[in-house]
């Protein structure tokens, strides 16, 4: 039985590589491992599609962020600081992992006549969605961006050739490119990275980067930095979407959440509590 299952997954993996992702989800349905709803939440590519695996996700409580002004900016600053994200002071070279957008930009397909006034004023934290079916991973010609077993969409900065196909492919604008040397200084001598965090690599020019769900902190048993900063008011909830007993699963079961561009079939792992 074990052997057969492995063979089946192999074939399913091959068909997924050939561009037909459906059989993997189908094979899981066949085995009765999951119900239809959960299959939707985890219908990715290749061997990773397994509801037994961990799939990390995050709920962002928008109301709390708007209640506690300045909290979002604190999360952003903390994230950018520990990840050595450079600040060039101009929009053209800009690199950002986590940032804020208005409702109409975060959810452009939701725009309609006479929206809730409160919603109009709100800002939404956005970043990489760590999609279960990531278009950027599909587009990358060198596997420099890839999906980890726990659902994180990660980057290998040393393999990236800087073709920026992933940037064209990402429907969330989550990716940034190092247009110049992030380790350098501006004309007036200001270093682009104010305080280098020696525990995380700085990047070189010519490669793409984005939010990594703090994979380096998770390895040490710590939550993502933004989640930690937001933890006193529980504005962000991080956890395993496939564990029915996790806090995030309980919230998703009991509260109404929305996702960015769900119609594209990317299956984001970020959810918004409005």
């Amino acid at each position: 039985m074990d052997m057969k299952r492995r063979d089946f997954l192999k074939i399913a993996g091959l068909t997924a590589i050939a561009g037909i992702g459906a059989p993997t989800a189908f094979s899981r349905l066949l085995k009765g491992e999951v119900d239809g709803g959960a299959a939707y939440a985890s219908g990715g590519e290749g061997a990773a599609a397994d509801s037994n695996r961990v799939r990390l996700g995050m709920v962002i409580d928008v109301k709390k962020f708007n209640q506690y002004k300045g909290l979002a900016q604190k999360c952003i600053d903390a994230c950018h600081q520990i990840h050595n994200v450079p600040d060039y002071g101009n929009k053209k070279d800009e690199i950002k992992w986590l940032w804020q957008e208005r409702y109409e930009n975060a959810f452009p397909e939701h725009s309609h006549y006479r929206r809730n006034e409160e919603l109009e004023k709100m800002y939404f934290l956005v970043s990489c969605n760590h999609c279960d079916n990531p278009p950027c991973v599909r587009a990358c010609p060198t596997q420099a961006t890839f999906k980890m077993k726990n659902g994180i969409v990660a980057m290998d900065y040393h393999r990236c050739i800087g073709c920026r196909f992933c940037m064209a492919a990402c429907p969330y604008g989550a990716r940034s490119f190092n247009w110049r040397d992030p380790r350098g200084r501006s004309a007036d001598g200001r270093p682009f990275i104010a305080h280098v965090n020696p525990d995380f690599p700085t990047r070189m020019r010519g490669v793409v980067e984005k939010c990594n769900f703090c994979v380096e902190r998770l390895a040490e048993g710590l939550p993502p930095k933004c989640v930690e900063v937001a933890s006193p008011v529980k504005a962000m909830i991080f956890g395993d979407l496939n564990d029915p007993n996790s806090e995030i699963s309980r919230i998703l079961r009991s509260r109404f959440t929305i996702q960015r561009k769900p119609a594209l079939g990317t299956h984001p792992s970020l959810f918004y509590l409005i």
């Binding site: 599909r138 990358c140 010609p141 060198t142 990236c160 073709c163 490119f177 190092n178 490669v207």
Partner: peptide, 26 residues
């Protein structure tokens, strides 16, 4: 033009070293 557009042109051969059939660039 492709080479001129690469951020890391010295790594262009990574496309051959790590062939990725799901990428249209491959």
């Amino acid at each position: 033009f492709i080479l001129a557009d690469l951020g890391q042109p010295m790594r262009a051969l990574n496309v051959l070293l790590h062939p990725t059939p799901n990428s249209m660039l491959f």
